[in-house]
Design a binder for these strands. Structure first.
Lengths: 343, 343
DNA sequence: TAAGTAACTGGGAGCGCTTCCAGAATTTTT
DNA sequence: AAAAATTCTGGAAGCGCTCCCAGTTACTTA
């Protein structure tokens, strides 16, 4: 409550500042009786140690920064990010770290935020969302002296720890599923092809077609931007190519695309089948419910935090990379059920 | 980069620590020539002052905490929160504050997080989302010694600054609009009636009916929970009462409700008209596009931060409260256009 | 030209912790 | 019983800044 210091607590409990510090930090070499006495005083006074002082003396802030680069501004558009943030926040809380949030919307933002991230004694580590091609933010962050973990495969650097899902394989699986259901003119709506996620998912799409002897058709590949409207517009461009199935690189885009399909009077999955990516709650609620690739978003965030904390507390070994598994979730939009092809 | 201190910069530029400090903080009383020399050294060395030391010496952390209480866990369900967070983050950035994010999911979370919020020298102020009835978090926060601003009218305390939109009036306007269009059996899907937002919007609904001489019908009022599924389920319970229009306390619930309506083969707005609340991007994309109450979510967050910073920097005056305006946005779902009643 | 004022600069005393180290109290070993 | 090891405790030296205050220099004014 008031402006108590360690020294005050020490006086009140008849010991020295050092002893109080030991008690607070749960260190050994304090007699049980003394420990209890000190704890009682702390309890009674409602004392809380000053974090700034602690951080200065111990050179540890117990704070990590979550950096969402510019262009990942779909932060407030795609439910993916809130979910990721939730997982990250939960893990921070579990391990007693505080989460600092750095949303970069504009280049000006970046110029204001970056120096803050650089301040020594401020962050123990940084978790940064993989950005776009040409974005040098991650490189700049790596050059700082604090540990960095990237969420998603970074575009440029390969000497940094990162965590990702196996987007290529997941997309491969999604498209192969469509092929097995008999579709032959399979289109894809990619994310903006300036990010590794989008490129990897597109790569999976291409490989699936090739491995199954299907012809590639440039007209069946259109670029979206991970937004509903982007998916909608992409689908409008895709329709003339008359696909019988579409793999969308995100659920949100799939929803937009299905809206476009509905508008021209076509049915899902009878006329065009769909597979999405993410398995957001909204996938279940879609009409028809969306077949999609499930990725463990919240756990992804948790694992990312754990990687970072490991780096912080156990030193910087050679960069590690963690790849998490995904899973195809079959619902109605791919037509598998209608065709009786689901066990 | 390295472990430079003010003292090092001082030596290298041939001045004292104090002078370097003045330069860094843009204070007067430094000769132009000296200032430039020091700045050059700082530039060359890539020096950044240690934030922990600065916070300790100045008793200011330049950090504010955003606290989202338990039960507001719709954080990752309702696009409202990401948008709010975005506004808050932007304002923090503008005013050179860092944003700490505290998502409380469980009571255990709260017990871990609260002591951290209490640490002196950690946060300069706290922005907390208004919680539910019975939640004592806000009271606990007010008892801390740092400034607090509540986003949304708080349930219990009235001696705290808060910012809100005029939910009663907004809801009143929405329902009045439906009445003017000729609807007479108007139902409402409320949020969980444990929060002030929900109660206020319900209050507006009731007043609109009363002021227009319409009979209240308990069966026309059902409780949702601000989720899509909640809206869907609420609508199913509402259908037997055969409303000709529905006011949903959020866009997301309106979407769910419209899904339920579609499922039983009824049309929007011909059979049942809808008005939502929030004016999220998704409202435009709905089928039919949703008539709704627009509230300036991002600006709301920005204003909240400004209030808090004002409190931090100019001392704690008697609690202030700011009420922001809303606006009815007429689209298709209310039937006004079909009826040719829009100018 | 001397006195007065304003513009600068540096030293020192903190801010409230952690941590090292020396010493005291206690227990174990010989 | 003394000696050695172990457990416990307090003092002091920082951590790297800010900010007050005294002192120095430059510029006005009488």
């Amino acid at each position: 409550m008031s402006e108590l210091t360690l020294e005050d607590i020490a006086k009140r409990s008849g010991v020295s500042r050092s002893t109080v510090s030991r008690v607070i930090n749960g260190q050994p070499y304090v007699r049980q009786e003394v420990r209890e006495r000190v704890l009682r005083v702390i309890q009674e006074t409602g004392f809380h140690p000053n974090l700034a002082a602690r951080a200065l003396a111990s050179q540890r802030s117990w704070m990590i920064g979550l950096v969402l680069p510019r262009n990942v501004s779909s932060f407030f558009t795609d439910p993916y990010f809130p979910r990721l943030t939730q997982g990250i926040a939960r893990a921070c809380n579990l391990y007693n770290y505080t989460l600092g949030l750095f949303l970069i919307s504009t280049p000006i933002d970046e110029e204001k935020i970056f120096p803050r991230l650089s301040r020594r004694g401020f962050l123990d580590g940084i978790l940064v969302q993989s950005g776009e091609v040409g974005d040098q933010l991650i490189e700049r962050l790596i050059n700082l002296t604090i540990p960095v973990v990237v969420a998603g495969r970074p575009f440029h650097s390969n000497d940094v720890s990162y965590i990702d899902v196996d987007n290529v394989t997941a997309a491969y699986e999604a498209v192969t599923h469509l092929i097995q259901l008999g579709y032959r003119k399979i289109g894809t709506i990619t994310g903006a092809l300036t990010s590794t996620v989008s490129l990897d998912r597109k790569e999976g799409y291409l490989r699936a077609l090739l491995n199954n002897g299907l012809r590639l058709d440039k007209n069946l590949i259109v670029e979206g931007d991970f937004t509903e409207t982007g998916g909608y517009l992409a689908m409008q461009r895709l329709l003339p190519a008359q696909p019988d199935a579409v793999f969308a690189a995100s659920d949100v885009m799939a929803l937009g695309a299905m809206r476009a399909v509905r508008e021209v009077g076509l049915r899902v999955p009878e006329d065009i089948a769909f597979v999405g990516f993410d398995d957001l709650p909204v996938a279940t609620l879609a009409n028809p419910p969306l077949t999609t690739i499930h990725q463990p978003i919240a756990e992804f965030g948790e694992r990312a935090v754990e990687m970072l904390i490991d780096l912080i507390e156990n030193g910087v070994k050679p960069p590690r990379c963690v790849i998490m598994d995904t899973e195809l979730v079959i619902r109605e939009s791919c037509g598998a059920r209608a065709k009786g092809m689901v066990v």
